[in-house]
Amino acid sequence: MGADEPSKSFPLKVGVAFAAFFLATTAGMTALSLGGGPAFLRPAVRQPIAFNHLKHVKDLDLACNTCHVTVETETFSGLPAVEICAGCHAEPQGTSAEEKRLVKMIQDQTPLAWVSLFRQPPHVFYSHRRHVVVAKIPCAECHGGIADSTSPPLRVRKLEMKDCLACHERKKVSTDCTACHR
């Protein structure tokens, strides 16, 4: 390997890098929507169990606050502790491999370390009870079709400030920085 070889390919690499950056940013600018930018720029997540919302919410008709226990009473809604799943899954309910894994986790009392997808930065104040109970906004308006999905989203999603502001302007709610920032 010659010492000057890397510098020969340098302009090409820079060119490729710039092209990639340009594509990424323009794609980002056009594809910005609920979800926090283009999917490939968002961090990937792996949940401890491939949870199936549709099965529990539609087939079993469970209310959201069975698992997201504080959604109507606190600012945060919470992700379910293993004890909540254990209420039904201490005994196998079906035959799926994923459920077998869950039953094993329940027996071993392994905590379920769910990754939160919609997490806001620490400088933002947001309250679920305010939006869900007081303003009566359906979950799907902010969270999209997650309750109708059969497996967890693969990437972090986020509401952006413009999503919050668009609705606040529409509903004549405060858009003062002090309402949301802290």
């Binding site: 930065p121 400088h123 405060s174 003062d176 920085c177 002090t178 309402a179 920032h181």
Partner: peptide, 15 residues
């Protein structure tokens, strides 16, 4: 830094 509708002078650090 802005003054809001309730008279608070705010500072948004990320801005």
């Amino acid at each position: 830094t802005k003054i809001d509708h309730e008279g608070l002078v705010s500072q948004v650090y990320s801005r």
